[in-house]
Simulated scan of single mutants.
Amino acid sequence: MIFLVCKSLEFKNTFGQKIKVMDIPVLEKNHRYFFAVQARLQRFTSLLFEHPQEKCCHSFREHLKRKMSWTDFKDLYNIEDFRNNA
């Protein structure tokens, strides 16, 4: 089984709020989702940087779950389907 390594990122936005983005997948440059993840991460962090936030911690994994197709998300995070809750 292959495990996915995740990192986190902390920064202050333009309003001086400390923002933490968690669950960022670490991918090799030749991985098929490298470009998609980098582009979405850049867009996500720029939105957090430019607007005031109610929360200080954000999950990039949850953001990707909403923005990517489910099959790509499952493939990226190696989620297996179990039958009959087994």
Rank of each mutant, 00 (worst) to 15 (best):
Gln53Thr: 01
Asn85Asp: 11
Thr71Arg: 10
Arg66Asn: 10
Tyr77His: 03
Arg32Gln: 10
Ile19Gln: 14
Met68Thr: 08
Val5Thr: 11
Glu10Lys: 04
Leu64Met: 00
Leu47Ala: 13
His63Pro: 09
Ile2Leu: 10
Lys18Gly: 00
Phe3Ile: 08
Met68Gln: 05
Lys65Ser: 06
Lys7Asp: 14
His58Arg: 09
Cys56Gly: 05
Ser59Leu: 00
His63Asp: 10
Phe35Gly: 06
Gln53Val: 01
Cys6Leu: 09
Asn78His: 08
Lys29Pro: 10
Glu62Arg: 03
Asp81Trp: 02
Trp70Asp: 14
His51Lys: 14
Leu41Glu: 08
Ala86Trp: 01
Lys7Pro: 08
Tyr77Asn: 04
Glu80Arg: 07
Ile2Val: 12
Arg40Asn: 15
Asp72Gln: 09
Gln17Lys: 03
Leu76Lys: 11
Asp72Ala: 12
Phe60Gln: 12
Arg61Lys: 11
Phe44Ile: 05
Cys57Trp: 00
Trp70Glu: 14
Tyr33Ile: 01
Asn85Pro: 06
Ala36Arg: 03
Lys12His: 08
Leu47Pro: 04
Ser8Gly: 07
Leu64Phe: 02
Gln38Ser: 15
Phe34Trp: 13
Lys29Glu: 15
Lys74Val: 01
Lys7Arg: 09
Glu54Cys: 02
Ala39Leu: 10
Ile79Ser: 04
Lys55Leu: 08
Cys56Tyr: 00
Lys74Phe: 02
Glu28His: 07
Thr14Asp: 10
Ser69Cys: 08
Lys67Ile: 10
Ala86Met: 05
Phe34Asn: 15
Phe82Pro: 07
Lys18Phe: 02
Ile79Arg: 04
Lys55Ile: 00
Gln17Glu: 15
Ile24Tyr: 02
Arg61Ala: 11
Ser59Thr: 02
Asn78Leu: 05
Ser59Gly: 11
Val5Cys: 06
Asn84Trp: 09
Ala86Tyr: 03
Ser46Lys: 10
Asn30Ser: 15
Asp81Tyr: 12
Glu10Ser: 05
Arg61Asn: 13
Gln53Lys: 09
His58Glu: 12
Gly16Ser: 03
Lys20Tyr: 00
Arg83Ile: 06
Val37Gly: 04
Arg40Trp: 04
Asn30Val: 04
Ser59Gln: 03
Asn84His: 13
Met22Asp: 11
Lys29Ile: 00
Phe82Arg: 11
Tyr77Val: 01
Phe44Lys: 11
His58Ile: 02
Thr14Glu: 14
Gln17Ile: 00
Ile19Lys: 10
Asp23Gln: 07
Glu62Asp: 15
Arg61Met: 08
His51Ile: 05
His51Ala: 12
Ala39Pro: 05
Glu62Cys: 07
Tyr33Leu: 12
Pro25Cys: 09
Leu9Pro: 06
Arg83Met: 10
Gln53Gly: 06
Glu28Arg: 02
Phe15Gln: 13
Glu28Pro: 05
Arg40Ala: 10
Leu76Thr: 09
Arg40Thr: 07
